[in-house]
Amino acid sequence: MTTLTSYLVLSVILFLFGVFGLMERRNLVGLLISVELMLNAASINFMAFNHFMFPGTVTGQIMTLFVIGLAAAEATLFLAIVFAVYRHYRSVNVERVDHLRG
């Protein structure tokens, strides 16, 4: 069961969930959640390749660790931006934030 292909397909499906959510959600926090999904899917990819294609090495796992760390930093900043956006637009609807129109 635990084959490379199954892991890869799983990570693709998860990634697609993330894409769908990114396109469809209106709330900024909803967007964040979708983005986290995508990052997570990438991590699965790294781990799978590390185990199935390059056994004995450790690079994929290191990558995953870094992804986790970066995701944390990114979530922090995202949430700070949510604050700033709310202050200016009185809304966290991503469709309202369109001042760069034109």
Partner: peptide, 16 residues
């Protein structure tokens, strides 16, 4: 791409 990934080597080596 996912389905075209080559056959996996056996996971005989020890985990890191």
């Amino acid at each position: 791409a996912a389905l075209a990934a080559g056959p996996a080597k056996g996971s005989t080596a020890a985990a890191p």
